[in-house]
Design a protein around this nucleic acid. Structure first.
Lengths: 211, 211
DNA sequence: TTCAAACTAGGTACAAATACTTATTTTTTG
DNA sequence: CAAAAAATAAGTATTTGTACCTAGTTTGAA
C-alpha cells in the first residue's frame, strides 16, 4: 500500500524540494500540494491523504489554526508541522494544536521519511536537531511557554499595549472606559502569568504575538 | 552558452527545490550545491560559476560575512541572496555586503530565472513581493531602525528592565539609589526614542537586544 | 592634567500601572 | 431559553513610571 502525503506550504521551493525528496521513495507518494489553507480544507472534503505535512506560516491562515481545524474535522489524518523556526515556542504551539510531528526545513530526506513512518505508526516525532536543543535547554529551564487564549477584546488591547499605548489612549481608541481597559489589562497580565508591561511585551514578542 | 549557478543553503529542501526549478530551464544549470560556507570558498578556488545563490543563514558563517568574503576574492561572480526574511533590515545588510539580488524563499521559478538573468546583465534585482512591501512602507516611514549606543550601565539596566525588574529592584540589585536608576531609565528611553516601557521592550526585542 | 562623558542622586509633579473588589450588561452557545 | 463567557465599569489603595530640573563625583582619554 502506498502512503499518500499531502503537503501545504506557501514556499514553492519547499513544495518542490519536499516533493522531489518524497516521490523518489518506494511506497510513498505526494498526493496534492497546496499553498492556501482554504484549498487544503476544500481538498479534504473529498480526498483522504494518509498524512499531512504542514507549514506553520501560511498566507491565509496560521498553521496553528489550520492544524486545529483539520484535527477537529479529520482526526484520523495526522499532521507533521514543517517549520524553519527552531524556537521551542513554535513547537509547543503546534503540538498543542494537535500536530503529531515537528520537522525543521533543514531536515534531510531520510529524516522526513522516518518521521512520516513514525507518525503513521502512532508515535510522535520531533526533529532530531530540535530534540537535542530541547534536551540541552531542559538542563536549565524547561520552558513550556505557550500563548494564552485571549478573547477578542483582550487581543485587541494586548496589541495596543504592544504598540506603546497607555490605557487612557486605548480607552479613547476603543471608545470604552479607561476602567474597562484597566480590567482587561489585569486579565491579560494574569493570562500571560506576568507582573508588568515589560514582561508582557517581551513574552508577546517571544511568542511572536506582537508585530 | 550555459549559465552555471552555484547554490549554497543548509536547507536540503531548498537546495532540492531550487535545483529542480533551475535545472529544467534551457541554458541554465546548477553547478555545485553546498551547505557550508567553507565548502563554497574551497570550491571557488578552482571553479568559476557565473552566479551564486546564497542563503543568509548558514551553519558555519553568516551569509553576510560570506557575501563580503566572496565579493572580495571573486568580485566577478555576482551573488543573489536567498532568504525567508521579509524584513528590510536583512535586505539592507545583504546588499551592503555586496549582494546584487535578493529573493525570498517564497519565490517562483519564473522570478528566479528572471532574477538570475537580470543580475547577470549587470542590474540589481529585488524580490517582487518585497519590493511592493518596501514601496508601501516608504509611504509611511522608512524605518532604518538601529540600536542606540548605550553606556555599560545603561545596557545593564536596560537588560534588567527587559527582565521585568522595577527600578526599585534594579537599584537593589546594583546597589545604587533608585533615583539613579530613574535617571538612567530616562536616558535609555530617550536614546531609544520611545516613551514608555512597552515600546522600549518591543524595540529591544525587534533589534535583538533582549534575551 | 584637564575636559568630557558617565555615573551618581536628590527635588518635584503628575501620569500610569498594578492589585484587589464588586457588579451590570451583552454576547455566545448548548 | 437558560447558563456561561465576555465585556463593561466603578471603588480604593498603592506602587511604578515618566518628565522635567540641578549638581556632585568618578573615570577615561586627549
Amino acid at each position: 500500500m502506498t502512503i499518500k502525503v499531502t503537503i501545504i506550504d506557501d514556499h514553492i521551493m519547499i513544495l518542490k524540494g519536499l516533493k522531489s525528496m518524497i516521490d523518489g521513495v518506494e511506497n510513498i507518494r505526494v498526493y496534492g500540494t497546496y499553498c492556501y489553507g482554504e484549498d487544503l480544507l476544500h481538498f479534504l472534503k473529498t480526498k483522504s491523504p494518509d498524512i499531512i505535512l504542514m507549514d506553520i506560516e501560511l498566507p491565509d491562515i496560521s498553521g496553528i489554526d489550520l492544524c486545529k481545524i483539520v484535527n477537529e474535522k479529520h482526526p484520523e489524518i495526522p499532521i507533521i508541522a514543517i517549520s524553519s523556526h527552531e524556537e521551542i515556542s513554535y513547537l509547543n504551539n503546534m503540538t498543542n494544536a494537535g500536530a503529531k510531528g515537528y520537522l525543521l526545513k533543514s531536515t534531510d530526506k531520510k529524516e522526513i521519511i522516518f518521521a512520516i513512518k513514525t507518525v503513521l505508526s502512532g508515535q510522535n516525532y520531533i526533529d532530531k536537531r530540535l530534540k537535542e536543543k530541547l534536551i540541552n535547554e531542559s538542563l536549565g529551564f524547561s520552558s513550556t511557554e505557550t500563548a494564552p487564549n485571549l478573547t477578542k477584546r483582550e487581543t485587541e488591547i494586548f496589541e495596543l499595549i504592544g504598540k506603546g499605548c497607555t490605557n487612557k489612549e486605548i480607552s479613547a481608541l476603543l471608545s470604552i472606559s479607561k476602567r474597562t481597559v484597566d480590567a482587561h489589562r489585569q486579565n491579560i497580565l494574569k493570562k500571560f502569568d506576568v507582573h508588568n508591561t515589560a514582561e508582557l511585551v517581551k513574552k508577546g514578542m517571544r511568542l511572536n504575538l506582537l508585530k
